[in-house]
Simulated scan of single mutants.
Amino acid sequence: MNEGNLTKRQAQAIETKKQILETSMKLISEYGYDNVKISQICKEVGISVGGFYHHFKSKEDIIIEVYKEFDFLLENYINNNLNEECYIDKIISIILYQVSYAKKKGVDILKQVYKAQLYEGTEFFISDERKLSQILKNTIQCGQDNNEIIKEFTATQIKDQLLRFSRGILYDWCIHNGDYDLLNETYISINLLLNTMKNK
């Protein structure tokens, strides 16, 4: 939507939604997700509970909305910072960027992301239309076209395996309560996995 064409009411709604998101994340960071109530968020923002539900279905919906930011940031990162010539290295960079974002958000938020994936945000998180899914698939396809990556499996099949891997290591980091170096362990594991996909 072109912001220049917004009505005053539409602009106000966008600003209110932004305030709800920012206030929610501030409170969650300070008190923990389970300790923050919707009524507390509303009080901080200065809206009614009904006003909250006009923008979000639940507290879990906030987590999903915040995490959608990642796809936008990833696309920007790919367009402006991904300079590796080797497609295997590009895949590694994409996965490391994914886990870096999760680490930055923190274990508590990531745990809630997984809960939201199970109950509220399944459609978004596993959608083939997600930028993460599309970017990864396109990178794999280019790697196959360049004879860097095996062609015994389709780009979609390889993409699905890589996303299952990244979700798995993030889940493992959560159940270990973030007590190991996520980036280092991801780097080791993704290299081991991609070694099986290299065209010898």
Results as ranks from 00 to 15, higher is better:
N2V: 06
N5I: 09
T7Q: 08
K8H: 08
R9M: 11
R9I: 10
A11D: 08
A11I: 09
A13K: 07
A13T: 05
E15P: 04
K18P: 00
Q19R: 14
L21C: 11
L21N: 01
T23E: 02
T23F: 06
K26Y: 11
I28V: 13
I28L: 06
S29G: 11
E30Q: 13
Y31P: 02
Y31T: 03
G32E: 09
G32N: 11
Y33V: 14
V36S: 07
V36Q: 06
I38N: 01
I38P: 03
S39H: 10
I41R: 00
C42K: 02
K43L: 08
I47M: 06
S48N: 01
V49H: 10
G50S: 12
G51L: 06
H54Y: 15
H54F: 13
K57G: 13
D61T: 06
I63P: 00
I64S: 13
E65Q: 11
Y67K: 05
Y67I: 06
F70A: 01
D71N: 14
L74E: 04
E75L: 10
Y77S: 01
I78S: 01
N79I: 10
N79V: 03
N83I: 14
E84I: 04
E84Y: 15
C86V: 04
Y87W: 05
I88A: 04
I88G: 00
K90N: 03
I91A: 05
I91S: 00
I92F: 02
I92W: 01
I92K: 14
S93W: 02
I94G: 00
I95R: 00
I95A: 09
L96P: 01
L96W: 04
Y97T: 03
V99F: 03
S100K: 01
Y101L: 03
K104M: 11
G106A: 09
V107T: 08
Q112N: 14
V113I: 13
Y114E: 05
L118S: 13
Y119Q: 13
T122W: 11
E123M: 05
E123Q: 15
F124W: 14
E129R: 12
R130K: 09
L132K: 01
S133P: 05
Q134G: 06
Q134I: 08
Q134V: 14
N138D: 15
T139P: 09
T139L: 01
T139Y: 06
T139Q: 07
C142R: 15
C142D: 12
D145P: 00
N147F: 12
E148M: 03
I150H: 06
K151V: 14
A155V: 03
A155S: 15
A155D: 10
D160T: 10
F165G: 09
S166C: 10
S166F: 02
R167E: 09
G168C: 07
I169C: 10
L170S: 13
D172P: 00
W173E: 03
W173R: 02
C174M: 13
C174D: 04
H176S: 14
H176A: 09
D181P: 03
D181V: 08
N184V: 14
T186A: 07
N191K: 15
N191M: 07
L193K: 07
L193D: 05
L194W: 13
N195K: 11
T196Q: 15
M197I: 07
N199L: 10
N199Q: 15
K200P: 15
